[in-house]
Amino acid sequence: MKPLSEMTEREYFASVGQRPGMFVGKTSFHVLTAFLIGYDQHALRHGGHGLTGWHDWLVARRGRDCSHAWPGQVLHIALPDSWDDIWNLPPEDEQNAIKVLFELLDEFTAEREAAQGAQFSD
């Protein structure tokens, strides 16, 4: 495995998704979204892209907006039949939401990397 300092954001998010407990302890959708919000804020404070554009990308991916922040947008995609209590997801919904979160992050970062690569090749 590459050292963290040499990973792209996409590689880093993939490593978190493969072993989330190693990064956050108790693996839950909400703990992972809090971790990613912290990652985003740190990246932005230090000149990185963080998750800039992530919410808008999720809205476009879903095809509609609502009043939820990006974690709610992910849940709408992962659990399209809705959920009763956002803070108390059944274990199978929790696992699916985490799986979908990292699948979406991979798609988002792949598109962003491709767009950045296209900018540098022009």
Rank of each mutant, 00 (worst) to 15 (best):
T52C: 09
I86F: 08
G21K: 00
M22R: 14
L44S: 06
A14P: 04
M22I: 11
E107Q: 15
T27I: 14
Q18M: 07
I77Y: 02
Q95E: 15
F35R: 05
D56E: 13
R112C: 10
E9K: 08
H30D: 14
I86P: 09
Q41M: 05
D85H: 01
D65T: 13
T33N: 01
R112P: 09
A115W: 07
W70K: 03
D84S: 10
D106L: 06
Q73W: 12
P80G: 02
W70P: 03
W87E: 09
D40N: 08
W57V: 01
A43W: 09
L51R: 04
D81Q: 14
A97Y: 03
D122N: 14
H68R: 11
D56Q: 13
G25D: 00
P90A: 13
T109N: 11
P20G: 07
Q116T: 11
S82C: 12
N96L: 15
W70R: 04
P90L: 12
T8M: 03
L44Q: 08
G17N: 05
H46G: 06
Q95R: 15
P3A: 12
A115S: 13
V74M: 00
D93E: 15
D93P: 08
M1N: 13
C66Q: 14
P91D: 11
W87A: 05
K2T: 12
F13L: 08
L104K: 06
G17S: 06
G63W: 02
P91A: 06
L89N: 05
L4G: 01
P3W: 13
Y12S: 00
Q119P: 05
A14K: 07
R45A: 11
R10M: 05
T27R: 10
R61C: 10
V24F: 02
H46A: 08
Q41V: 03
H49R: 12
F23R: 09
R10Y: 02
I98L: 04
H42G: 08
F108S: 00
N88P: 04
A69G: 02
G72V: 03
E107G: 07
P20M: 05
V24P: 03
D106S: 12
L75C: 08
G117S: 13
F120V: 12
H42S: 12
G48C: 02
A114P: 02
F108I: 00
E113K: 01
A118Q: 13
A114E: 10
P71A: 01
R61I: 05
W83H: 00
D122W: 13
A110Y: 10
A97L: 04
A118L: 12
F35M: 04
H76C: 12
W87G: 05
G17Q: 07
W70H: 06
E111M: 06
H49T: 15
P90Q: 12
G21Q: 04
T52V: 13
L32E: 04
F23A: 01
A115H: 14
L51G: 01
P71M: 01
H46C: 06
P91S: 08
F120T: 14
V24S: 05
E111W: 07
T8I: 04
I86M: 14
G25L: 02
L32A: 00
H68F: 15
E113L: 03
Q119M: 14
P3V: 11
P80I: 04
D81N: 13
G17R: 11
P91H: 09
I98S: 00
G53Y: 08
H30M: 11
F120A: 14
A78G: 06
